[in-house]
Amino acid sequence: MTMLPENPSPKKLGLVIDLDICVGCHACVVNCKEWNTGSEGAPLSDINAYGAEQSGSWLNRIHTFEVTTEKTAQVVHFPKSCLHCTDAPCVTVCPTGASYKRVEDGIVLVNEDHCIGCGLCAWSCPYGAREMDPVEQVMKKCTLCVDRIYNENLPEEDRVPACVRTCPTGARAFGDLGDPESEVSEMVRERGGFDLMPEQGTAPVNKYLPPREKQHLIASDAQATETQAKNQAPDVAGFWGWVDSALAKLG
């Protein structure tokens, strides 16, 4: 049923992504693809994987942004996957009931056997969290590794989403964001965790933690000017100094 659950459980499983820590290595992307291509649904296919114009379905993507002010510039690596929204528009637009939100933990899933591949759920998602599989022609999305987190055949430390398990820097945390006492909720409180595009009214469960203020970015104008001056006129003596001035004269 594509109505959102009428009486959802207070449990809201999701991720907290720390933009201060992420180094943009794409390990989470690769492990996500690896795990989910072999899980219950159809494999995550690739078209022309080793040639020109490759395409394929992935459930997690890392964008890299540059955040600039008049004086400073900072690079922020930005992992993006399904945010398992509380008011998920992708669920209610689905005409077949294939797209649904689980009552017990709020995970948004697709029943691939009922998906007609119309793509409307992807149109309704502001975050680009859903991708059509180019071979299976059904909609693919993050399952929050529902086949890992409850899987008693796995050692306990592996019962977290593949992206969280694999992150070498610990930039991703998994937990119950509906429980104010949980570790992830505490992280969000302490670090000022935020929603993506709150104006879209989707009430995402996943939260992002902002990059911390960098000391070297608080450099004064004077310092910046000094550095600039140094870079412009390198003080080189001897032979290389002569080469430098000779080349400069040549124009």
Binding site: L19, G24, V29, E53, Q54, S55, G56, S57, W58, R61, I62, H63, T64, F65, E66, V67, T68, T69, T72, Q74, V75, V76, F78, K80, P126, E131, M132, P134, F194, D195, L196, M197, P198, E199, Y208, P210, P211
Partner: peptide, 23 residues
């Protein structure tokens, strides 16, 4: 607003997640 980084400054894409166009 999409990245939530507006408080830090202007946000521009530096690197796309992939080299080719995706779906």
């Amino acid at each position: 607003s999409a990245t939530g980084l507006g408080a830090m400054g202007q946000v521009d894409l530096l690197m796309s997640p992939h080299t080719e166009e995706n779906w």
